[in-house]
């Protein structure tokens, strides 16, 4: 089974001139950002600064008013015909989305499925593997996040940290080129944060492109190659952790 190796080499994300407003209120203003394959980028900023919205535009959970986002040169959610962009049919959006995995703040595991079923659901539904192989795949991924013994537990029988690790395994099951984390630890008790961060740290070493929205500045500093600081929908700072934290330009 090829779970990570081939995906590890690619995953270039380009965000160009992305703007977005909700009923007149501008949440993102002309955001430009390039994330290199295998790079780990942490997006920091106060609540309501637009960082989660930016993350969600990357796999088209959120549409944009202007600008575009590509993963490996491929537009997500739109296609270009001449000078204009058109929103893709749902089916095509779904296929392109599988290149980008998402880990949510509230885990969003399917409560009526066991941990292993949660993980195997998408690969089996998309006919990448059959049911038996799906189970194998799920067990392998669970072992990776240190939850081999929880394959048949339902999400509600797991702690928050365990649920988030299952959610990470679920996102990995489609071997995405890019993995997005939307405040992966902010719904967790302080003592459970560590176990989730450990898993993310391991992923960072494997070479998948990671984009992490977080409040954990210490973690961002340690694990990220670059830090993006956003406020009021504007990108204020982009740079290595040392640059951003020790000699900010603003």
């Amino acid at each position: 089974m090829s779970t990570t190796t081939e995906a590890a080499t690619r995953g270039l994300v380009e965000i160009r001139g992305v703007s977005k407003s909700y009923s007149g209120h501008e949440v993102l203003h002309d955001v430009n950002l390039t994330v290199q394959p295998g790079e780990v980028v942490a997006i920091l900023g106060p609540s309501g600064s637009g960082k989660s919205t930016l993350l969600r535009t990357i796999n088209h959970l959120e549409s944009v008013d202007a600008g575009w986002v590509t993963v490996d040169g491929q537009l997500i959610g739109y296609e270009q015909r001449g000078e204009r962009l058109f929103e893709l049919k749902e089916k095509e959006i779904l296929t392109r989305r599988t290149q980008v995995g998402v880990v949510f703040q509230n885990f969003n595991l399917f409560p009526h499925l066991t941990a292993a079923e949660n993980i195997a659901k998408a690969p089996v539904a998309l006919k990448r593997v059959n049911k038996a192989d799906g189970r194998e795949l799920a067990l392998g991924l669970l072992a990776k996040v240190g939850l081999s013994d929880k394959a048949d537990a339902y999400p509600r029988q797991l702690s928050g940290g365990q649920q988030q690790r299952v959610a990470i395994a679920r996102a990995l099951a489609l071997t995405p080129k890019v993995l997005l984390f939307d405040e992966p630890t902010s719904a967790l008790d302080p003592e459970l944060v560590g176990e989730v961060l450990d898993v993310i740290r391991d992923l960072a070493k494997l070479g998948t492109t990671l984009i992490i929205v977080t409040h954990e500045t210490g973690f961002a500093r340690e694990v990220a190659d670059r830090i993006v600081f956003i406020d009021g929908g504007h990108v204020l700072e982009v740079g290595t952790p040392v640059q951003v934290f020790e000699s900010p330009t603003q």
């Binding site: 796999n59 779904l94 399917f110 489609l174």
Partner: peptide
């Protein structure tokens, strides 16, 4: 979550 996973 199911949209993000590309489920039909």
């Amino acid at each position: 979550a199911s949209a993000a996973l590309g489920l039909p």
